[in-house]
Structures are given as structure tokens and as C-alpha cells.
């Protein structure tokens, strides 16, 4: 099982699209840096076809930095310690940047 991190907005590169197309059952998705904008409610449509077994997270420090308060409820907010914990829990980490 793999942890996928994304640090780009949905529109600044193809990172998010390619990542979503490359997910397997049981993987996790973590939005960091500019990636957290994908959790704005306006982008919810992008995630509707994800397998239910994929856990979605975002880094709270990055969403607060950007003034994002109204977030897609499918994403769980974690802090830097949680980021470390996730990195250890999954076999490998793929960075989409």
C-alpha cells in the first residue's frame, strides 16, 4: 500500500490527474502545500470516483496558511506529526510534484 502526496493545485499541473489515475485500493492520498486547494468544495467532483478504500488526508498547517476553512469533508486534516506517522505506516511514498 502506497501513500501518494500532491503539492500542486488541480490546475497548475497534471500532477493531481495523474495521481488520481494511478491509485490502487487501500492507498492513501495526502494533499500538501498548494495541493490542499484540491480540498475546496468546488473541486469535490474530482474525487467522486475514488475507491472507498482510499483514505484522503490534507496537511492542516498548509490549509490554514491559505485561508481554507470550508473543506471537502472526505479529507481528514493532519499535522506534521501525522504526516510522519502516515509515511511510516505505508510501504512506500510517491510524491506527485
Amino acid at each position: 500500500m502506497t501513500l501518494h502526496t500532491i503539492n500542486k493545485t488541480p490546475t497548475e499541473s497534471s500532477a493531481l490527474n495523474n495521481c488520481l489515475a494511478s491509485l490502487s485500493d487501500g492507498d492513501a492520498l495526502l494533499l500538501i502545500e498548494n495541493g490542499v486547494y484540491a480540498a475546496m468544495p468546488g473541486y469535490a467532483e474530482l474525487f467522486t470516483r475514488l475507491p472507498a478504500s482510499v483514505q484522503c488526508y490534507l496537511l492542516g498547517e498548509d490549509s490554514s496558511a491559505r485561508g481554507l476553512n470550508d473543506l471537502n469533508p472526505d479529507f481528514r486534516s493532519i499535522d506534521y506529526d501525522g504526516f510522519v506517522e502516515l509515511s511510516c505506516r505505508y510501504n512506500k511514498v510517491v510524491s506527485w510534484f
Binding site: T9, T11, G60, E61, D62, S64, A65, R66, G67, L68
Partner: peptide
């Protein structure tokens, strides 16, 4: 494009060590 995101209110970048653009 993505620059409209610069205009969101209540940004709080203390946690990432940057200055508050808003």
C-alpha cells in the same frame, strides 16, 4: 487562474513559516 486564491481572506501561514499575504 490560480492567483485568485491569493485573495482568500483569513490566511494564517505562521505554521509554515511564511508572511501573511492577505
Amino acid at each position: 487562474d490560480d492567483a485568485v486564491l491569493q485573495l482568500l481572506p483569513a490566511q494564517n501561514p505562521a505554521g509554515i513559516g511564511q508572511k501573511n499575504l492577505s
